[in-house]
Design a binder for these strands. Structure first.
Length: 1055
RNA sequence: GGACAAUUAGCUCAGUUGGUUAGAGCGCUCGCUCGACAUGCGAGAGGUCACAGGUUCAAAUCCUGUAUUGUCCACCA
């Protein structure tokens, strides 16, 4: 006999059980020893962002998906649940930036791209490890051997391939658009990353200048210096006549040329009914400018400051400029009205900074381009079509409409992001040329030498960035430290240079004296492929010996030995006069490029130097994170390697498309729609059959759990307190698709109690029947029907019914209902009734068989919900083979159920009624009572059950059954079904109270009878309702009438 | 402004296609150490299913409108 502890302690078991599962290898479907034709069942885990550890919402997702996977694994499917994490480009970069600022008071620009990315990876390793640990703690049966990361090598390849393919088909294109620009994050935001905050704003009405015929209104006066048109509604009588006219004048010191255009979008009733058009800084205006061929004037730059060329406004922040405009308007008496209005401010979803709409070059995915591979349809059309044709279904169904609505309004998707962390755009530029591909294009040069200035550190200035770029482009890069840099000697430097073995395939970028050295070397006869000379001195008074040693410049010789030269000049360089650079340019017949702010090279100026090198330079931007997560279903299954000549092979063939995508409804549009489009494009398949959308997990007060509010429940905390099974169960029961779920510790504690109940049920069965020592049946066949008591047949019937319902519920995604039914069976039917009865019935051989069957199969049904405790009990009491891979209980569809269920429920009612009488009349628990039951057709059945009735907490010492006859005059009574139950204890009865109570019951029974009679008198009811319904009503009527008769008789007797 | 959802017991929610006198858990009341379980056992109280109309023999369930709450989308210069 196995000794089980009095209470279940989850902590001890969970880690060891999870380890056993993992070691078994059964999380990987390849190890399941399935027949060839076993169907696949695939779920890819929505990859959690690596920005933070998991919260209860993730736990809920894991619980649901693990349930589905475990259920299907037990049903013989090739069940694959594929784990991974998401690099979440912007979100991650932001978290790291904030952390950096807080801990080191540095911005990412202080660190530079490389160093910053190192920080990101450090952070990422940490959170990723936490996430994986938490996921295991939840008991998730994920196939860790296939773990993926949206930013690992395989996925990088997939992303680059996808981009290239889409570019080749013209789906991806580069275009200038107004984008939502966050001046703080220095990045564009997708439409769905912009938040709108209601606020009060000053609304100014004014004219550009005195004789301008139309007043306009604005909340953003600072942009008005870039206006090129005024738009009015073409139907507007007031302004109609001006349409087409052009006006010139000066607005706040800025010359403007304003054309009046007509546009139906303009609301005649808002403001003055006329709208100043600023094409560069408003989405709507941009469209108008496109339609009317207007000039586009950029007013605000990427830092949120006013561009050059706007007089005294230039260099001011937008806010300052706005104030100045208003001040000037007031001074020149142009302001007509100033009022406060409600207005929605667009802000960055990450940092709450007001966004600035700016025109910018970006990469887009076209959703409207018709594609041959989609049968002449566009991504958008196809993605809508599959939803309409039910090729993909949504649970709950209402989200289908939301999906289609959103899709129909979808515009081209901007996929480039101006941040550092993320998939680099696989595009390379060389001057005007562009190359798109999965690998960097081959370059003319094989080696690059970066020569530092005479007194500077080779690692300083712009070298590290360039080095990285050149290495990315496949060059061997050398950054030598030239000897004695503080006091350079020409011979020493030259001999150091010779050792670098420069030749025709070498690219040299030299800064200051470094570039002078390269020129001198060429003069000495060394061949060089290309020289980019940045701020090059031809003489310097502080190191006269150096230049004396070089001697007279022989530019012809230099030209002979260097194939190509570009000269860079910095206007801020205090040492090299522009004339020097110009002279060099002329003598060498080389192009001269001038750069501003040489001491603060920005990415763009690096870009210029890189371009001058004549090598391919990669686009500095990265891709929107949804681009890579949109490929999640197939990139994780080995695309593109597993997709050859339009055919799927390997994992992709075996597991794609997946069966279910289970995710939060909040990312239906962000993610689900993109997955559908990208999968259609890449593989020509809808990535999943069903989309199950869960709600958010809220705290017990209905608030969204968030770290800042401090109301979040850490899954690990509650797991440690109550156990994983309890946490999983509280996330499954009461959780319905698409609806939010409130979870508090009370609920989890309740579920812990249930888990413990199951444990104790098992413990009782084991201590009483020693099922661990009994030879095991296969749990597929029921015990023989002979010698079974009513209760035995009842529990088997109930269990069969339960198996059927639970199976149906899981298949219909009704996990909550399945869980509740299991709970009800376990607690009420099995523990409260059957086990209690088993204590009084003596057929222990049958009981052993039945309990073994019921408990074993019950553990199976419970397993997808609470895997740990069930696995533990299974291994203790049944077999050391894993419950995880045991087969799902069989359903006996021929089982006769009616009579058994009816009889048992009768029995339950009798027992409950007797207990009720005891409580109602406050009969002391220890006092034995006599019971008399009057019955009619049920009499013979009840007579057989007297022993049972007496033994089940009814405290009966004498029980008699008889046909209806004269009733005991004074007794406690209860009337149920067609029976009357009397407990003759007249001494205690308080007659007046009893009469009052009886009166009430008689009255309510009469009312009820009246209701039923009315219904039955209604001809249309009798004619139209189904016969079964009518019969039920009739039955009800007789029962109630009998009851009334007996009540009245009893009433007379005692009064 | 548009769309979608929610409104059922004190609280949190179920209630599949209209068909018993509307269910569960928690909480509450009363009573219990009864051969596993006080993380337990037994009994109970508690609801005009937001409101107003309509369809139907029959409505928590279907339709219309109103109110309140929530979510998403759009956005006006």
């Amino acid at each position: 006999m196995k000794e089980l502890s009095k209470a279940y302690s989850p902590g001890e078991n969970e880690t060891t059980i999870y380890e056993k599962w993992e070691e078994s290898g059964y999380f990987n479907p390849d190890n399941l020893n399935l027949p060839e034709d076993a169907k696949p069942y695939t779920i890819v885990l929505p990859p959690p962002n690596i920005t933070d550890k998991l919260h209860l919402g993730h736990s809920s997702m894991l619980a649901i998906e693990d349930l589905l996977i475990r259920y299907h694994r037990m049903n013989g499917y090739r069940a694959l649940w594929l784990p991974g994490t998401d690099h979440a480009a912007i979100a991650t970069q932001n978290v790291v930036e904030k952390k950096l600022l807080k801990e080191e008071k540095k911005t990412r620009h202080d660190l530079g791209r490389e160093k910053f990315l190192e920080k990101v990876w450090e952070f990422l390793d940490e959170t990723q490890a936490t996430i994986l640990k938490q996921t295991r703690r939840m008991g998730a049966s994920l196939d860790w051997s296939r773990e993926a990361f949206t930013f690992d090598e395989q996925r990088q390849k997939a992303v680059a391939t996808m981009f290239t393919d889409m570019y080749k088909e013209g789906v991806i294109y580069q275009g200038e658009r107004i984008v939502n620009w966050c001046p703080r994050c220095h990045s564009t935001l997708a439409d769905d990353e912009v938040e709108h905050q209601d606020q009060k704003t000053m609304f100014y009405t004014f004219r550009y200048w005195k004789d301008f015929p139309i007043s306009i209104s604005t909340t953003r006066p600072e942009t008005k210096i870039g206006d090129t048109a005024v738009a009015v509604n073409p139907k507007d009588e007031r302004y109609k006549k001006f349409i087409g006219q052009e006006f010139e004048g000066e607005f706040c010191g800025v010359p403007l040329k304003i054309k009046v255009i007509g546009d139906r979008e303009v609301d005649m009733d808002f403001g003055t009914g006329a709208l100043g058009v600023t094409p560069a800084h408003s989405m709507v205006d941009w469209k108008m400018a496109e339609n009317n061929d207007l000039e586009i004037k950029k007013v605000i730059d990427e830092d949120g400051k006013i561009h050059d060329g706007f007089g005294e406004f230039s260099g001011l922040t937008a806010k300052e400029a706005g104030k100045l405009v208003v001040k000037k308007l007031k001074a020149s008496d142009l302001l007509e009205k100033e009022e406060e209005i409600d207005n929605a401010l667009s802000t960055c979803y990450r940092c709450d900074t007001a966004i600035e709409p700016l025109p910018s070059k970006q990469w887009f995915v076209s959703v409207d381009k018709k594609l041959e591979r989609l049968g002449g349809k566009s991504l958008k059309e196809k993605a809508i079509e599959v939803a309409k044709n039910k090729e993909v279904s949504f649970i709950p169904n209402r989200f289908k409409k939301q999906y289609i609505d959103w899709m129909e309004n979808l515009h081209d998707w901007c996929i480039s992001r101006q941040i550092w962390f993320g998939h680099r755009i696989p595009v390379w530029y060389k001057n005007d040329e562009i190359y798109v591909g999965t690998e960097a294009p081959k370059n003319k040069y094989t080696k690059a030498i970066l020569l530092h200035a005479w007194d500077s550190d080779p690692e300083a200035a712009f070298f590290p960035w360039l080095k990285q770029q050149l290495e990315n482009a496949g060059l061997k890069v050398i950054v030598p430290k030239l000897p004695n840099a503080k006091n350079p000697d020409y011979e020493e430097w030259l001999s150091a240079f010779r050792k670098l073995d420069a030749d025709e395939n070498t690219l040299i970028i030299g800064r200051s004296l470094g570039s002078t050295l390269a020129l001198a070397a060429a003069q000495e006869g060394i061949k060089i492929g290309k020289l980019v000379a940045v701020c090059t001195p031809l003489d310097n008074k502080s190191i006269p010996d150096f230049f004396t040693a070089i001697g007279e410049w022989k530019f012809d010789k230099i030209k002979q030995n260097i194939q190509e030269i570009t000269i860079f000049h910095s206007s801020n360089d205090p040492y090299i006069p522009k004339s020097t650079s110009e002279k060099l340019s002329q003598e060498l017949n080389a192009p001269l490029v001038e750069i501003k702010n040489a001491d603060h090279f920005t990415g763009i100026q690096y870009q210029e130097i890189l371009e001058a090198c004549g090598i391919w330079a990669q686009d500095p931007d990265v891709l929107d994170t949804w681009f890579s997560s949109g490929m999640w279903t197939f990139s994780t299954l080995g695309w593109p390697d597993n997709f050859k000549d339009g055919k799927k092979i390997g994992d992709l063939a075996e597991f794609h498309p997946t069966q279910v995508l289970e995710t939060g409804y909040e990312i239906l549009t962000l993610w689900v729609s993109r997955m559908i489009m990208m999968s259609l494009f890449a593989v020509g398949e809808i990535p999943f059959e069903d989309v199950y959308l869960h709600g958010m997990v809220l705290d017990e007060n209905g608030k969204k759990m968030s770290k800042s509010k401090g109301n979040g429940i850490d899954p690990i905390d509650v797991i440690e307190e109550f156990g994983t099974d309890a946490v999983r169960l509280s996330l499954l029961i009461g959780n319905t698709p698409g609806n939010n779920l409130r979870v508090g510790e009370e609920k989890i504690a309740g579920m812990r109690n249930l888990v413990n109940k199951l444990w104790n049920i098992s413990r009782y069965i084991e201590t009483t029947y020693q099922i661990s020592e009994v030879e095991k049946s296969d749990l597929d066949t029921l015990p023989d029907d002979e010698n079974l008591t009513l209760a035995d047949r009842w529990i088997l019937t109930k269990f069969n019914e339960l198996t059927l319902k639970v199976t149906q519920d899981i298949q219909g995604y009704r996990f909550s209902e399945a869980g509740e039914k299991l709970k009800e069976f376990t607690w009420n039917d099995l523990a409260d009734w059957y086990l209690e009865i088993s204590k009084t019935e003596n057929n222990s051989e049958e009981k052993t068989a039945i309990l073994q069957f019921v408990l074993g199969n019950l553990l199976k049904l419970w397993h997808p919900f609470i895997p740990f405790v069930t696995e533990k009990l299974w291994q203790e009491l049944f077999t050391s083979d894993f419950l995880m891979i045991s087969s799902w209980p069989k359903i006996d569809s021929d089982k006769q159920t009616g009579e058994t269920l009816k009889n048992f429920s009768l029995l339950q009612n009798v027992i409950t009624a007797i207990r009720n009488i005891r409580t109602q009349y406050k009969i002391a628990p220890k006092q034995k009572i006599e019971v008399v039951i009057y019955a009619h057709d049920k009499l013979s059945f009840l007579e057989k059950q007297t022993e049972l009735i007496s033994n089940l907490k009814t405290g009966i010492d004498k029980i008699t059954m008889q046909e209806s006859g004269d009733k005991i005059s004074r007794a406690h009574y209860e009337i149920i079904d067609e029976m009357e139950i009397y407990v003759p204890l007249q001494d205690i009865i308080d007659i007046p109270t009893e009469l009052k109570r009886l009166e009430e019951e008689i009255k309510s029974t009469e009312n009820f009878i009246a209701d039923i009679s009315k219904k039955l008198d209604n001809k249309s009811f009798v004619e139209n309702a189904p016969e079964a319904v009518v019969n039920k009503e009739k039955e009800k009527l007789t029962t109630q009438e009998n009851k009334l008769k007996n009540l009245k008789k009893y009433f007379e007797n005692i009064s």
